[in-house]
Design a protein around this nucleic acid. Structure first.
Lengths: 153, 153
DNA sequence: GACGAAAAAGACAAAAAAATCTTAAAATTT
DNA sequence: AAATTTTAAGATTTTTTTGTCTTTTTCGTC
């Protein structure tokens, strides 16, 4: 559904929210390892979230790394998607028409319009905090089990 | 949601189903114009659907073109997505985990598992014929109104 | 203030997706 | 059978996405 970079971003955000605090910042290396993503590429993605939106914060130097404020953890996943400029994946027409609407619908419109709000609601109603609470439960993961032991780049 | 080529494919299939028959084949030019897609690229995509799956049929030469049998029009949109090898867009994990499942869920799993069947059902319950029947109604479109008059390639 | 650890920045490379162009093959018409 | 029309095939190009590598900047520690 989403692009690779969006998937990495979402996983990283959740991971950082879960394990970091202002007093415990996380380096890009452990983050990439945990969410099973290419290190430098993930760094790029996080940089954007840091610079443009301040959803994530970062500090350089020893004991530096990425972290998130408690306040930021209240952000909804829909908002995160918007910061990543990927919310259109959900909102746009299934057949790719630029002007698919009630007055100018595509043939799938009448059905998709029933599901789109549910999808949106799924991301709107879940905040980052909700998701990290789920991570407390057993067996909820952010990395690929299959990749354990595989070399990271 | 889907890639450009999938969007073009879906629109083209619906258009061909709607306006063609064995006695009235459609050339790639009018098809591409109607669904507002790049001509040669669309030709490639249709070639695949013709060669690999015979969902669409084609004949070369004068009065040749693309068409679809009445039988093929009973194909579900989910089946079409499978022929295009794009059904994974719907079925895979939202966060991109390879092994997201009931026993090994990602933090979004518990919510997405409620929506995934609805999305699947949307494509499964709609056959091509259902969609072309919708096209009978006023204002249902397959091209971009904005593009009218724009030069085709 | 020198050193080291971290992210930031930017250049570069590879791969995939999207698009275009040219030639060939097939079929119909004359 | 030659000319014409149409898709098929394939080569090539362009653009976007994904990924890597090197250098710079920032900041804390000694």
């Amino acid at each position: 559904m989403f692009s690779k970079s969006t998937e990495y971003a979402l996983r990283a955000v959740i991971y950082i929210a879960k394990w970091s605090s202002e007093s415990n910042k996380l380096g890009i290396e452990p983050i990439a390892k945990a969410i099973d993503s290419p290190k430098s590429f993930t760094a790029k993605i996080l940089q954007k979230l840091t610079r443009n939106n301040r959803l994530i914060l970062s500090v350089t130097g020893p004991n530096g790394g990425f972290y998130m404020t408690e306040e930021a953890k209240e952000t909804s996943m829909m908002k995160v998607l918007m910061l990543l400029e990927e919310d259109h994946i959900i909102t746009k027409c299934v057949l790719g028409l630029q002007e698919c609407s009630e007055t100018n619908p595509c043939p799938m419109h009448s059905r998709y319009k029933l599901i789109k709000p549910l999808l949106k609601d799924m991301f709107e109603s879940k905040t980052i905090r909700h998701l990290i609470e789920e991570l407390d439960e057993e067996n909820i993961t952010l990395g690929n089990v299959l990749s354990i032991g595989r070399k990271q780049k």
